[in-house]
Computed example of a mutant assay.
Amino acid sequence: MQKLKDFIKKYYEGLAYLFFGGLATLLNLVVFAAFQAAFGTAFAAGIGNVLDNIICILFAYWTNRTFVFKSTNTGKAILAEFGQFVSCRIATMVMDQVIIWLGISVLGPVVSFSSANPQLWAMGVKLFSQVIVIVSNYVFSKLLIFKKK
């Protein structure tokens, strides 16, 4: 039992990021799927994806600040931290949007099996995009936003 406690203590930040990043990714995929089911793939891949990302950015900031990196910033420092977080997440949102557009609008029509089930193809593209985004977000968070002083 002590070995498990030591392991968790040693790797807490990475484990917490994986857990809460996983929750944020799950939230992202669920909202994307809900938009897709309610309004269609075109909406989910466009405006819906932007709205989806905004929801997830707010959720991720709260969980990263509170549970993962345990930031203690207050006052102007918290505003700067939030600004950096949102700026980096907007960058990865743009990356997500480009991957979604390329995967669904450009590559989708070329790949024959994507026409058999376009919703499933879109969800696969979204999942692929989330892997790229979560790794990028960790690097931004660790090196730029919540760096230890």
Rank of each mutant, 00 (worst) to 15 (best):
L29W: 11
F20M: 00
A42Q: 05
T74R: 07
A60I: 01
G75N: 00
R65C: 02
A38P: 01
N28R: 08
F20V: 05
A42H: 03
E81I: 04
F82T: 02
F43M: 02
I57R: 00
G83P: 08
I55A: 10
G46P: 04
S71R: 01
E81D: 05
T41F: 05
L26W: 13
I78V: 15
G22V: 03
T72K: 12
I78H: 10
N49I: 01
A60Y: 01
L51T: 09
T74V: 11
T41W: 00
F39G: 08
A34C: 14
A33H: 04
T63R: 10
D52V: 13
T25V: 14
N49K: 02
L51F: 12
L23M: 13
D52G: 13
W62R: 14
T41K: 02
A45G: 07
G22D: 02
A77I: 09
T63L: 08
F67A: 12
G83Q: 10
F19A: 12
Y61H: 04
N53R: 13
A37V: 13
F59Y: 14
L29Q: 10
G83S: 09
G21Q: 00
T74K: 11
A60N: 06
A77S: 10
T74Q: 10
A44M: 09
V30F: 07
N64C: 12
I78Y: 10
N64M: 09
K70P: 02
L79G: 09
W62G: 14
Q36A: 15
V31E: 01
L23V: 12
I54P: 01
V68C: 05
N73A: 15
A37K: 12
G40F: 06
I47G: 15
G75K: 00
A24V: 09
R65D: 02
A80S: 15
L51M: 14
G46A: 08
W62F: 15
T63P: 06
I57N: 04
T66H: 09
A80I: 15
A60G: 07
E81M: 02
N49P: 00
